[in-house]
Design a protein around this nucleic acid. Structure first.
Lengths: 164, 164
DNA sequence: TCTGAAAGCCTTTCTAT
DNA sequence: ATAGAAAGGCTTTCAGA
């Protein structure tokens, strides 16, 4: 899971281009990296098969669909509950992200809601998971950076620090 | 920013399909939603122009590039610093997400690192922003859900609750 | 692993409804 | 807002290196 596949300069260019716009075609990508379309298609397929690229997603803006509230919810709960937190929130669709943590909090959720009343129903559902569950809700005021791309510059700098 | 554009069933089908795989072509989408390719292209363009779709991204897996550590960092700091937290972390590329919060914490960052030593250098850079900055680091053990799609089922249920 | 060629399909634009 | 038609471009496969 944590291997470092050998990515050359063109692989990085393709990765960066596809993070910028996943709908670019192979011909267009090929022009950008100076490779033929079939060569690009092969490289991209290899990146997918290596698990470096896990998919391609349209980015949907919840605010534009009426979700005016964006919140992060810190959860504390018993070990057994937290170990299965993903299953417990699986059918609460307002939970967009769910991470289990080591540290002060047991888990962290990213939640969207259409109103304060709606947020309240989500919190109620979370508290109903188990009596040991308690929550701290943090409302997002702004998101200066979301899902920034992983770039070659970033990777090179990190490798220099980790020297291996 | 928080309007609810009228999305019909086919718009939702397109949104869901593009969240599943952003590289599908218009012809393929058209077959799925029973619409001609030009009609699909127009609808997708409208969703983009309405800001419902803000872009298309390849999902890159940091672990597969050597980033073995995934952490959430809670920040506390003076108001003036936090108001500009996005700028302050802009050139710390290990920060993939940055949100300013209302509540116990002033901001929350999603950070990746290649090693504990690397994570330490990131923390040091964060603390160097200003003397008022303090951090709480939470290491991610697992991510049962990441960026779940926004679906019509979810939206319908939410609208029923918010009845408007 | 790449290029180049070829077939078939797709995107895009335009027209008309 | 959609379908249909047409031109050009694109994807995909295959051969050859």
């Amino acid at each position: 899971m944590a291997s470092k596949p050998e990515l050359d300069h063109k692989d990085w260019q393709l990765l960066e281009a596809l993070q910028r716009d996943a709908r670019q075609g192979y011909a267009e990508l090929g022009r950008a990296v100076r490779l033929s379309a079939p060569a690009v298609a092969e490289r991209v397929k290899r990146l997918e098969e290596a698990g470096v690229i896990s998919g391609y997603r349209a980015v949907v803006v919840p605010k534009r669909l009426g979700y005016s509230i964006d919140a992060m919810i810190r959860l504390r709960c018993d070990g057994g509950i937290c170990a299965r937190i993903g299953q417990h929130v699986a059918d609460i669709h307002e939970v967009l992200d769910c991470r289990r943590l080591a540290g002060e909090d047991s888990a962290l959720l990213h939640v969207v809601a259409m109103s304060v009343a709606h947020l309240e129903t989500v919190l109620d559902r979370l508290l109903k998971i188990h009596p040991s569950v308690s929550t701290t809700t943090l409302v997002v005021l702004q998101t200066p950076h979301a899902d920034r791309p992983i770039t070659r510059a970033m990777w090179d700098a990190a490798c220099a620090l980790s020297h291996d």
